[in-house]
Amino acid sequence: MANNNVTSAPKKKSHGAEIWHRFKKNKLAVIGLIVITIMVLAAILAPLIAPYGFDEQNYSETFIRFSPKHPLGTDNLGRDILSRLLIGSRVSLTIGFIAVGIGLVFGGLVGAIAGYYGGTVDDILMRIIDIIMAIPQIIFAISICSALGPGLVNTMIAVGIAGAPNYARILRSSILSVKQQEFVEAATAIGASDFRIITKHIIPNSLSGLIVQASMGVGRAIISAASMSFVGLGIQPPNPEWGAMLSFGRTYFRDYGYMILYPGLFIFIAVLSMNLIGDGLRDALDPRLKR
């Protein structure tokens, strides 16, 4: 095969296809991806598939543990828990993904600037990041949220900003190491502009660490948002959100444990799946594990 010169050029296999090929080998990561996909689909279709409305109260059917009409039971106001979980997943997952997105944009920008320009710029930005990181993430998020006021958008901003320093550090350090690779110098030698070097050579090679961190960050953001709801700062009732449901159910959990079991389980599954995906991505993106 090696000397078969007539073989035509193989079809261009994109980098993405290759990562997918390696990702597929990690069974747990694939399971995580399937679970998250189902959750996202369910969240999108929630209004269609949820048997009841999220605030549909029925005082004749409160505290039902299980019935064919309410497979996951009802709460103190007779609202169907399954429907609330499904509708709530829209909020929880949105917060998870958007908060990470906000964190990525801010953190990534700061990290990229610090890493590429170095010197004094790097020093100043990184000291600011150090100061922020000295504050526990959840307390930082709570302080932002209490300053901005509760609500979906503010929760996303608070959780996103609180996560940003992490991303800044990761991107900065990977840019620092990529910058020293010879192919960056090679690009300078063929006359590439700074912009081209950053966008075509440095960024694509620095992103893998960030992607992994972000996928795991989604899980963390869901937990952060849940914690904020738990202390009453995040999503306000009657809007369902997994953390808010957990917080709400704690009043009754001695007698009606299922009310916090199901939201807790959903958070657990979503976070676990995202972490599994993150693990899989880390392996798939690591070129040393090729073949």
Partner: peptide
């Protein structure tokens, strides 16, 4: 121009052969 020592680190691992060779042509 310059030819580098390490044929591993001097080529961008995210670019196909055609893109690497074409890059100077694109720049100019």
């Amino acid at each position: 121009q310059i030819i580098f020592q390490d044929p591993y680190s001097s080529l961008n691992p995210r670019m196909a052969v055609a893109d690497i060779i074409a890059e100077p042509l694109e720049i100019f």
